[in-house]
């Protein structure tokens, strides 16, 4: 199968250290569809030259060949689309996004309604820490039916509260699970967000000490 062969060859080319060797391997492996192969190699080379991670492109081609059994023109179009998203993600996640962050940003941009401004908001909330997991949760929430603005708001709020990647992922999983069991996306998100904040907020400090002063809450309402 020619498409499977060029996907394999492309994967080999990614792991090879030298561009010349990769080109030679791809040239010998992609003989059955020279035009598509050339276009794919051009897309990969351009991405690499631009400092973009090429693994997402390769993975997309692998998926297209092995799983989707897509025709060559669609594979090329898909590879071109993800290369474009990688570039947009890199620009939105400036100043120095890692390859994993760029890939995560491109994934998020593939979710309905997610735009570069949402990526910039996540980066602004976490300028020094990796945004790989937050962007993954953002994409997951949006794909669950949560609006991109709500998902961005909550993800950035939780980042500012200093939640761990594990807690962020747990929130996304809980929301997905609730939706799968019939809850609406908005309500599932609201409930899970409150549940997380019930543990996190207000998190101590002077006012919390005042609020918990002995005698203040005897028989009275407690925090929800």
């Amino acid at each position: 199968m020619s498409r499977r062969r060029f996907a394999i060859a492309l994967a080999i080319s990614v792991s090879a250290s030298g561009a010349i060797r990769a080109q030679q391997q791809s040239a010998t492996a992609l003989v059955n569809d020279p035009e598509a192969n050339a276009q794919l190699m051009s897309i990969v080379s351009s991405a690499r030259d631009a400092g973009l991670p090429i693994e997402p492109i390769v993975s997309k081609v692998q998926y297209a060949v092995v799983v989707a059994h897509a025709p060559a023109p669609r594979i090329v179009a898909a590879a071109r689309a993800i290369a474009a998203r990688l570039e947009v993600a890199r620009d939105a996640l400036m100043p120095q996004p890692s390859g994993l962050e760029i890939a995560a940003g491109a994934d998020a941009l593939g979710a309905p309604g997610v735009e570069p401004k949402q990526l910039r908001a996540v980066r602004a909330a976490s300028p020094r820490q990796s945004v790989v997991v937050p962007l993954g949760v953002l994409a997951q929430l949006v794909s669950s039916g949560v609006s991109s603005s709500d998902a961005t708001q909550i993800v950035t709020d939780l980042i500012k509260h200093g939640v761990s990647p594990r807690q962020l992922v747990a929130l996304g999983n809980d929301v997905n699970s609730d939706i799968a069991h019939g809850e609406t996306a908005a309500k599932a998100l609201d409930i899970r967000w409150r549940g997380l904040n019930a543990v996190l907020a207000p998190g101590g400090g002077a006012s919390a000490a005042a609020a918990n002063a002995p005698g203040l809450s005897a028989t009275g309402p407690k925090k929800p």
Binding site: Y63, V67, A70, S143, L168, V169, A170, N173
Partner: peptide, 21 residues
């Protein structure tokens, strides 16, 4: 997989999305 959000990709396929912390 059931219980995870689904994504339709550029190729018309549907896959599940999971996030690893």
């Amino acid at each position: 997989p059931p219980g995870v959000p689904h994504a339709t990709d550029d190729l018309g396929g549907v896959v599940g999305l999971i996030t690893v912390p």
